[in-house]
Each structure stands twice: as structure tokens, then as C-alpha cells.
Design a protein around this nucleic acid. Structure first.
Lengths: 398, 398
DNA sequence: GTCCTTTGTGAATCCTCAA
DNA sequence: GTTGAGGATTCACAAAGGA
């Protein structure tokens, strides 16, 4: 999973191609979606166009991760307001809400369904929202067959206070992490996250400051370019936890381009869709200015699960353990004989290091590598240490 | 917010009336709901019966606050064991099983609609849920015309870990606070909450321990009476923030009776509906044993103030350390690369600041915070100093 | 009685690959 | 698709037990 310098250079040069201007959807008029193979997918580009129309052009099962920050406030979205919104009195309020919700739901269902089509089977989707919209998004997502893995709470370090003092300070937003189907194949860098968190599992509540200061995009007049620019730290945690270097990250509501900028910095590929030319241009400039961090700093960490398997027999064949030696558990309660074929013998029972380990304890299963110990140079070692030794000496060959 | 002694005494004497036993619904056969005025509403009682049927008997606009802890529809499959092979006691009760989302939605819509009818116009509703159900509950609640005031995150101090390391620790549950209509007339004790929170506005993320120890109801055999008993601190914050002494609190899924017990302790009236006779009896005993308390004691209780934990990753996210930088130990014998995910790399090894620190010295453990140094402005600092800096700028991190 | 160690447990949608 | 074996995996508390 090492990312070479050549690869990074390749990413950079590709970005340079689109740096000349936005890739407007109008530039691709004659390409029907069904004829576009995944290999043709143009990457590291910002598409200026309608979210739904552009999603429909993307090939199926071509994207590793979707990050979506859809509109929260129905009233402010031109496409979602009723034409005759002008006079709504209190009596009509419920109907108005129902109409708005129905429209919002239809819109949500449409883009979530397209994202599900575009996602690879082992990909995943993240959506962020507030209480205004996240319940609808979450329910629709479940209805469409997505499988929720976690809901994550982004706890804001410095939220806007509630000026009227009529509610609790709205100090968090919610993210939903889901796979397109109920699948066990998804990316999650458990050990890396744990390593960065004082060796404790990363929890579902994340404490991250708002996007402020230099990170916040401003226009020439010093006004913020986008009203809800997300902090890069939030996106970084999303991408680092659930994607790999080189993965394709799609953002159907790119906005100020946080997801694309972080994707570039962390060695991921991106596709961003944005309808507003002002946002799209700002995002493009931001992406152009973003510099990838040292590839060593985001290269996939070796996870135990992904280490190559080693048969216990291989240790015997490599001379690290001799047939006839005895293994013991930590407390020296059980003692087993190493046989030449890589099995253990404990009394009359013969089986794998795991089976005999489980049997000796009366448990349904056991990791023999971390259960059995052997004596070497007057010290006791888990046989897992010898496995590590074996892997080290055989890594060069591979 | 002060609860007067006279008022508490009055509540007590009323409760004595129903202390003789459970008020079974069968005891009220001849009273059609429409003929029952609000003034006749029998209070401080636990109704043994079906949630929907009993809600339908209650008069309209008679309740100040609803607290509902409905089934979550967890959809668990198979068994789960801890790394030590012990069995995880899952919530596999029949009451949590639904055939489909559609069935769960119909049930949810029915009880939420009845609660809306029963609520006074200036009343409010609280629902608690997890990602399994809360999105559906929230969307249906909006569809019915409820108006959401806040979503609240209950951050668990001591959640169950994710034993297989396949997801983020599910460390929170979500509460929704809503009024039956879009109304400005609802109860919110802003100042009282602020006073109990170091004069800071109470945020939407609440840090409260699970219900354990003596508070957890046990049967004669020492087994927990109810699988999902909620902590009284959670209910206390709900009731103190959004109800007044003397208010009527309705809980359609009473379970172990936390809401009723806290209501009695805080001088509120209650109506609890519970279908399971075992739960209902336990709740009744619990309520009988509950004595009015000083609200301040509750408000002060929950958050044990220790130094908030800071992840090394947070320093990177905050820009205090950049991915790709190098850390060195005091004597410059070892040099490690800071990775974007908050882990360190030393040669082929990747791990936490502590793990890599220990590895570099050949020791079993190491405090990475005081072992690793970094250069800043020509001077060398322990990374612990940067942690201090982070804590200073982010007080709310706990 | 005090201190230290061991054990138990909580609303959980909790593995992965080869044959 | 299914089956079977390999082997990876836990945090904060509280209560009980032992020295």
C-alpha cells in the first residue's frame, strides 16, 4: 500500500490538466452514461452542474466513498421552496411543512439512490446533517437499503450560542456512516484510529473545532464564501478512517470544496459536483492550492488483519521451532507437544494450535498464536513472536 | 426552580393513595375516553396495559411533558462474545422485534400521534433512541406536525466497547425534544441550567454515565430487572430543563420506571404505561421507595470532572503538529515520523506515541507525551506542552 | 479496616478467507 | 451460494475477593 512518489506526481499532473478551468458538464454532451466504463472515469475534477443530473452520468460501482453535505434548510433552497410561498399563515403551517418535507424527501431519495448505484459494493457513504434534515435523510437511507454502521456526533468546540436563551446550545451535528448494502466488506482503519487516540478505541463522539481563521474561505471583501464550510479536520477523520490512499471520493454537494481539498492532501482521488459557479470556482482554487502531505504520513498502516497468513507448520519448516518441543500457556497449566506436521498433541488430542488451545481451556475458540509460549534463551515467548520473526525474514523475498 | 416543602408533601400524600397496588386498566372498564375531563385524570399511577390502548383512554391536552423510550428495533443477529469469550447479554426481548421498517413505522406513528393529542398545547415531548430507530422516529414526528427544538446527544461515560474492532464505539444515544406544534410557548429553564453548568449555556451534548451500581434494579437472583434502564441523571436533566414542579409527565413505555421515580423525586406528577407486569411491578416498588430530593443534588451529580482526555490526533487536526514532522526523544537517539492519522512511524513499525516510544526503548510501556519532543521556534518542547496548549484553547473537550 | 487484584457487565445491527 | 477453519478482538466502573 506504499504510495510512491511517481503516483503522487501523477496525481498532481492530472490536477494541472483541469486547473485551466472548471470541467463543465456541457463539455461532455455526447456521452451517454451507460457507455462509460469505470476506467474512463475522469478524476480529480470539479463538475459544475446539477447534483442529480451529474450523478446520473457517473458509471455504476465506480466510487469508493461518498461524502455528502446536503442542504439543511428547506426554506433557503430555491429548488425546494414552493412557488407560492409568499403568504403562509399559522393554519396552513402543517400543510406547508408536509409539502416541503415531501419535496425534500423526494430530492433526498433521488440523490441517495444515485449514490448507491455509483458506489462500489465495498464502498461506503457519509452524510452530515442537523436535526432539521438528518432524521429524514437517515430514514430514507435505510429505506433504500443502505446499512448504517455508525452515527457520529461532531461536537463543536466553539458553537454559536443560542442568543435568545430559549433552547440548548446547538453544539453538534450528526454524521451517518453507511454501506450501500448489509455487507461486511468495508474499509475501517481501526488500529490506526486507536493508535491516534491514546490506544483507546475511537468513539462515536468527535470533538472538533469549527472552521475558522485562515482555513475559512473569504472573498475579496473579506466575507465568507460559503455559509457552512466544514472543517478540514472533520473530513480528514472521515477519509482516514474509512478510505485508502488512491480511493475515489465523490462529493455530490461540494460547496467550498473541503472534501476535495482534504482528499488531495491525503492522497485520495476526488470527484466534486457543485451547482453554484461561485462555490465551484472557489473550490477549484482551493484544491489547486492544496498540497499533498508527505505520502509516508498517510500511507496505509500495516494492520494485523492484513498481514499475510503464516502456517504454524512454516515455523517448523523454517527451523524456528523443532518437532518434539513443548509449548505451555502463560500460567503453565497446559503443556502440548509440537508434532512434525504442525499440529499439537495434548494427551490423546491432536489438532491445530488454536484447536488444542481452545480444548485445553474448555473454550469454543482460541488464538493459539497468543496463547502458547515457548522458551528461547532462558526467556518465554509467545509463538506469535516467532511468527513475527518469520514474517520479517520472508518479507524481503516478497 | 426551588421545590417547596409543602408541594412535595402534597405529592407524597397523593402517591400514598395508589401505593396499594398497580392500577390495572381493567379496573376502569366503563369510562369512555371522550367523557373524561382533564380534571379527572388520575395521577401518580402506573397503568398496566398496552401503550396504544391506554394512550387512547387519556383525555386530550392533559399532559405537560411526554418522555418516551420506545423499542429501538435493534435487528440483532447471532451472538456476540467479548475477546475473553464471555457472552454479551444482548437485548433480544420480544418487545424489540419488528418484522419490517414499515411495521415499526406504523407503530411509531400511532403512539406519537396519540401523544400529540394528549399533550397540552404548551407541552413538549422527549424521545430517546439510537441510530437503529431514531431517524425513523424523528422523521415521523416531523410528519405528524411536531416541531423539533433540539436534538440532544447523551454521551455515555462508560459505553460498551466495540469488541470486534469493526466500527466506532457506539458511545452515545440521541434524544429529540419537540413541541406538538410550532409554538413558542414551551417550558425551558435556561437560567437554572446555566447556573448548574459553570455559567455556560447548557449544550446539546450531555456527558452522563450509564445506569450501574445500586441504581440499577436487580431481582432476587441479582439479575437486572430491565435490559435498558436509563440513568436517573438523564431524566433529571430532562425534567429540570423542560418541566415545572407539579407538571404531569407521561411515559408511554415506562419500563423500569426511571421517569416516574425522577418525577416523584423532583415534585412532578406522573403517568406511566407499561405492558409487562414484571417491569410494572418493579417500577411501582421503585416509585414507592423514591423520596423527594433537592434538585441541586441532581443537577450537580453527573459529570465527574477529570482532566479531559486529548488524543494525539487532535493536535494534528488543530494544526499544532503537521503530518510528516519528526519527533525525537530527549537524547535524540530515536526519531519518529508523525502520520496523518495520529500514529507514529519508526522504521517499519507504526503505532501510538506510547507504543512507538516503548518500542524504541525496548520497554514494555512508555508515556509518549513526556517522551517525545518536537522543535518549535528553535526550542525543543515535549509534545505534552502542545497538549496543554490544546486544552487551554478547547475547554469544552470533556 | 485498607489496599490491591480479580471479576463482571453495559440498547451491539461487531470477522474473513479459502475451498 | 455455503461451510469450516484461522485467528482477531474491549473500556470504564463497580463489586467482590484476597492479602
Amino acid at each position: 500500500m506504499e504510495v510512491s512518489r511517481a503516483r503522487i506526481a501523477g496525481v498532481n499532473s492530472r490536477i494541472k490538466v483541469v486547473r485551466t478551468g472548471l470541467t463543465a458538464s456541457a463539455a461532455l454532451p455526447g456521452s451517454p452514461p451507460d457507455q462509460r466504463a469505470a476506467s474512463e472515469l475522469a478524476l480529480d475534477r470539479i463538475i459544475l452542474g446539477d447534483c442529480l443530473a451529474e450523478l446520473q452520468r457517473l458509471p455504476s460501482q465506480s466510487v469508493d466513498l461518498v461524502f455528502a453535505d446536503p442542504p439543511y434548510n428547506l426554506q433557503l433552497e430555491g429548488a425546494l421552496t414552493r412557488p407560492d410561498h409568499s403568504h403562509v399563515d399559522a393554519v396552513d403551517d402543517d400543510w406547508d411543512k408536509f409539502d416541503s418535507f415531501a419535496e425534500y424527501d423526494a430530492f433526498t431519495r433521488a440523490w441517495l439512490a444515485e449514490c448507491r448505484r455509483v458506489l462500489k459494493p465495498d464502498g461506503a457513504l457519509w452524510v452530515i446533517g442537523s436535526y432539521h434534515n438528518v432524521f429524514r435523510v437517515g430514514a430514507i437511507l435505510q429505506d433504500l437499503g443502505y446499512w448504517i454502521l455508525n452515527d457520529i456526533v461532531w461536537r463543536k468546540a466553539n458553537p454559536m450560542p443560542n442568543f435568545r436563551g430559549r433552547r440548548f446550545t446547538n453544539a453538534h451535528e450528526t454524521l451517518i456512516w453507511a454501506t450501500p448494502t448489509r455487507s461486511k466488506r468495508y474499509t475501517f482503519h481501526y488500529e490506526a484510529l486507536k493508535g491516534g487516540n491514546d490506544d483507546l478505541q475511537m468513539r462515536s463522539d468527535w470533538f472538533i473545532p469549527l472552521c475558522t481563521g485562515d482555513e475559512r474561505l473569504k472573498d475579496a471583501g473579506g466575507r465568507k464564501v460559503h455559509p457552512t464550510q466544514k472543517p478540514e479536520a472533520l473530513l480528514a477523520r472521515v477519509l482516514l478512517s474509512s478510505s485508502n490512499p488512491g480511493d475515489v471520493v465523490l462529493d455530490p454537494f461540494l460547496g467550498s470544496g473541503t472534501s476535495a481539498a482534504v482528499a488531495k492532501k491525503l492522497g485520495r482521488r476526488f470527484i466534486g459536483i457543485e451547482r453554484d459557479p461561485v462555490y465551484a470556482r472557489a473550490a477549484q482554487q482551493r484544491v489547486d492550492a492544496a498540497a499533498p502531505v508527505d505520502p509516508q504520513a498517510f500511507a496505509a498502516a500495516p494492520a494485523k488483519r492484513s498481514e499475510p497468513r503464516v502456517a504454524f507448520l512454516s515455523l517448523i519448516e523454517a527451523g524456528l521451532i523443532a518437532p518434539g518441543e513443548m509449548l505451555e500457556d502463560e500460567r503453565r497449566r497446559h503443556k502440548a507437544l509440537v508434532r512434525a506436521d504442525g499440529t499439537l498433541q495434548l494427551g490423546p488430542a491432536v489438532g491445530s494450535i488454536h484447536k488444542i488451545g481452545a480444548l485445553s481451556q474448555g473454550l469454543p475458540s482460541c488464538n493459539g498464536w497468543t496463547y502458547w509460549m515457548i522458551e528461547r534463551n532462558g526467556q518465554r515467548l509467545h509463538i506469535d513472536a516467532l511468527r513475527g520473526e518469520y514474517r520479517q525474514t520472508h518479507r524481503a523475498a516478497a
